[in-house]
Amino acid sequence: MHGATNTVSPAGARRGTVVVTTVASDSHTWNLVFLQLLIEELGYEVINLGPCVPDQVLIDACRETAPDLVVISSVNGHGHQDGLRVIDALRACGELASTPVVIGGKLGVAGHQSDAAIGELMSAGFDAVFDDSSSTTREFSRFVGTLSPAARPLERTEVVA
């Protein structure tokens, strides 16, 4: 994928790599462009997989890059159902079993996710859920700030170095 945004490249090394993606049925991309810029400004290199990402494309990209974080964004209202399917597939890959994976956006068609719906996503394996009607991008930035690069297994550091 090319040409999305001019990457902001501050001098010095990146803190790591983040995969930004959406789910297979979701074509919205402004959310992805925005998240890419935001995460780059937090010091990470971003791999933006673009719209309508099939599960297998996401899994392959994660296997290849061993990211420090996977950010799934969906706003078309199918994110809850698709998120449950995608997290199962990601967690089923041994090397991605403990990679931090978060999901956010407008995940259903009724305006907000109930506590039960968010609980379902969390117990399916997400590390955090940023539902549009109950969270802000500030909370997300703080979450990214808590990721410790040092906690990454060594072999992964080499891949992104």
Binding site: P10, E40, E41, L42, T137, R138
Partner: peptide, 12 residues
Amino acid sequence: RADIAPPESGSS
């Protein structure tokens, strides 16, 4: 919430 919250200025 408003759909768009201005992001915190990035630290990099």
